[in-house]
Amino acid sequence: MIGFEWLKLRRSNRPWIALATTAFFLALMLVGFYTYAQRETGGAADFRYTYENESYFNGLTFALYAFYYGFLLVLPIFAATEGGVQIAGETASRTIHLGLARPWSRGAIFRAKCVVAFAHSAWLAVFLLALSLAAGLLLVGWGDLRLYPGVLQLTESQQFLPQREALVRFGYVAIASVLPLATTVAFALWLSTWTRSAVNAVGVAVALYLVMFVISEIHFFRDLQPYLYTHYVAYWRELLQERIDWSRVALDATRLFAFGAGFLWLAFRRFRLREDP
């Protein structure tokens, strides 16, 4: 059944639209990063193909910024889309009846859809990070990773990671970033079981994600933050500290997992009990 879901996903335009949009986003980031660096250094920043860039504005910084913004603002849209269309889309087109008219349990149908939606989102996260690194290292230049406290909240104190260590940490980030996206997929899947329109499911999922993300990022609302899963989606930032606080990583990952499992349970319960006229 997973093969069937995978075939349906491959034949849809969604993966290609997601990849093309991600690549376009990176191209914009590259231009934006270049012009910003030029302005900040008074035109002294020097970008060439594959050379060692001693400045703060090197390929690793670019990769991190590109991934950070892409992960928080671009990938959730595609994760929500994938979760949203899986059930609502098939309900709207009534193709859900094809599966339900076969000796397949609702559990098996739901599981196959989850696996494919999770895999698609994970693949997008890895793609974004790999392309960010490739673009950064090839077009901006290599060097060590330096982080400073700032509005992005990437670190609370100055950090330094040698290039080799930074690349290993990006590997950790790639793995860790799958969990927040899976939680967004689960959230969208839950909404998807309530609506009979894919557009509504995706629209509501994206809108709610953005609302929760904005609320959870504003310090003023810190009492609400523990109740919003979006507060934990960038938990992988900890993996880029000189000394990783693994207990904090594990705690945030556990919280995200709990949110994701809760959304999935609600989604499956609704899918199992609902009618399909």
């Binding site: 075939l7 349906k8 034949r11 849809s12 087109s93 009534r94 193709t95 859900i96 009846h97 094809l98 339900l100 008219a101 076969r102 000796p103 397949w104 349990s105």
Partner: peptide, 22 residues
């Protein structure tokens, strides 16, 4: 017990719901 029913019965609904891209 839908699964038990569908092991022995086949249904076709109208208009036929199919995947356009397959």
């Amino acid at each position: 017990a839908r699964v038990d029913v569908m092991r022995r019965a086949r249904f076709s609904f109208a208009p036929p719901p199919l995947y356009d891209r397959l």
